[in-house]
Amino acid sequence: MGFRTGITGFLGATLLAFLAGCAPDQSGWQTRNISGLMPELAFTLTDHQGRTVRGKDFRDRVVLMYFGYTHCPDVCPTTLATLRRAIHRLGERGDSIRVLFVTVDPQRDTHQALRRYVTAFGSQFVGLRGEPHRLKDLTRRYRVVYNREKPDGESYEVAHSGSVFVFDRQGNPRLVAQPDDSAEAIAHDLDRLLASG
């Protein structure tokens, strides 16, 4: 009994240690580390120029992906402005970064509307839209919620996750930034990702 319980305890502890290792530690990152938890960047959508783009077109770049819509009253413009400030802090090295703004309201966000919206933030910003099922695939892949609320006449809001997913040059999801993360914190982590190759 003693021996068996000992073995069980040992196996249990090993299993626990192994499984606890599945949560990536923060080790110096200022936004949330999600390395190894989610699948690589993959999608097929059209950008604000009307061209078909795929996830793998963005390999060799550090990519930030954010879900939002152009009629979004406050969170989206604030978050995109924070991202713009973070990228500006990096100077020229920030030029290669791409911010993918995926609309969760493709009905109202036409290519033209997206183009007007994203170009206001800078050349690194790319507007993306897709058929509802493409959008569903992408949001399921990154476990993101968006919900169209009941329309009040012509206008309606779309509730959505405010998180920004950050991918490294190999297309692996590495970090999640949240609306309350500062531009400094995001810039710090982007700098580190750019430096790590």
């Binding site: 606890a20 599945c22 949560a23 990536p24 999600i34 190894g36 938890l37 989610m38 476990r143």
Partner: peptide, 11 residues
């Protein structure tokens, strides 16, 4: 465990 739950809900 919060960190384990975090990983389980994303992966």
């Amino acid at each position: 465990i919060p960190s384990v739950h975090f990983a389980a809900m994303l992966s």
